[in-house]
Simulated assay, not measured.
Amino acid sequence: MWKDLLTLTRGEQRGMAILLVVLFLLILLRINMHHFYPTADFSAIVSDSLIASQLESFPGDVAATSAPQLHNLEPFNPNEPDPEQLRSFGVPANIASNWVKYIQAGGSFKVADDLRKLYGMSEELLEILIPYVDIPQKSSPEARRQFTPAFVDLNRCDSLELASFGWTGQMMDSVMLWRLDSWFPTRYSEHILVDWNMDSIAALRLSMQKKYKSKDGYRDVIIAVNSADAEEWKLLKGIGEVLSERIVAYRNLLGGFVSIDQVAEVYGISPVLFGDIKSQLRLDSVPLRQIKVNYASVAKLRKHPYFDFYSASELVNTRRQKGYFTSLEEIDSLKLFDDERWGLLRQYLEID
């Protein structure tokens, strides 16, 4: 048996001979490699490095030749780079290209020293550019609020307020007369009202809407906030098709109103409009649609208008770490909501 295993066929013997020849040639090639690839001479590179290091030690004209040469500099905004302007300044092409790409990718510079973020920006070039950097300062929230225009409700303003806009007697009389049986659906900013004339008032007449009337005068409608449908909400002055649908949708998201003041939370209902209709609203008792907080997911909680992502996540994470809640006071202790909001929200939560 061993003899059969160690015996090679004629083909195997021929293959073995060829393999030995190839190995011999490879060994021979390795031994004579230096004849084909002579050793590189690194002396020139070393000498150039020495010369460069020596040049750096001389502070004279030689070192000055490597400093960036910029010209035609003028104040510029680095957040609005102009390739032509950068080229005219003498900014290297690679830095100018990186500059433009950085801004296009969403980057920005808040202070001049932020230019060092640019790939390839050297300290020498930065020192030259900084004095010419002009970044417009954004106005503060206080300054923006200071210039926020005030809006005027023509349904409520008196003649003295209208006169302060420079209106003529004819313009004021027209508005006072028209609003006896109609109302203005929009409030207008003061700086617009100052520029109005009689033609503007006449055009405004087309947008006015008629007040609801009955034989006994204006319709005295009482709305049950939890059971009224969209059509009933439209009976109120100032509530059209859009607002009526929003009120019903918001009520469904809440799970029902627990306070008349919640109607004012609907987007599009201004404090003025809510003040007009509040006396016609009545809170009717209906079963609230409550949330089972021990089983609700973050997505489920987020659907309620009083939950945001942070409060919903915090509540669910606390439940996972400490177990099911046994009382609403445990949720209150997390301090996720202010007292007013919690007073409303707790009525929509269920512990089971």
Rank of each mutant, 00 (worst) to 15 (best):
Y295A: 14
K117P: 00
V316W: 02
F109Q: 01
D173Q: 13
L6M: 13
E314V: 09
S164M: 06
F274P: 02
P59M: 01
I103N: 02
P271A: 09
P305F: 04
I351L: 09
L129P: 07
M16G: 10
N317F: 11
F337M: 05
A224T: 05
W178I: 05
R302L: 15
S327E: 09
P68N: 03
N32W: 11
R116Q: 12
I277K: 01
R282W: 05
K3I: 13
F36Q: 07
A150C: 07
T318F: 14
L177A: 15
F307L: 01
T326E: 10
A228H: 00
K211S: 03
L6N: 10
M198N: 10
E190K: 15
Q209L: 13
L180N: 07
N294Y: 03
F325I: 04
M208I: 01
D181P: 00
Y295D: 12
S57M: 11
L235H: 12
S285Q: 09
Q13D: 07
L154S: 01
F89Q: 04
L235F: 08
H34L: 04
S207D: 06
K210S: 10
L19G: 08
I291D: 01
L70A: 09
Y295P: 00
N72S: 15
N294D: 07
E142K: 10
A64H: 11
V316Q: 02
M16I: 14
L19M: 10
G275D: 13
I201D: 06
Y132P: 00
L162C: 06
R251P: 01
S313Q: 14
L315M: 12
T65E: 15
L160M: 08
Y188D: 01
A40L: 14
Q13G: 14
D284A: 07
L50Y: 11
F274Q: 02
L162G: 09
L345F: 03
A224C: 02
F36M: 09
G275S: 10
R219E: 14
Y132V: 00
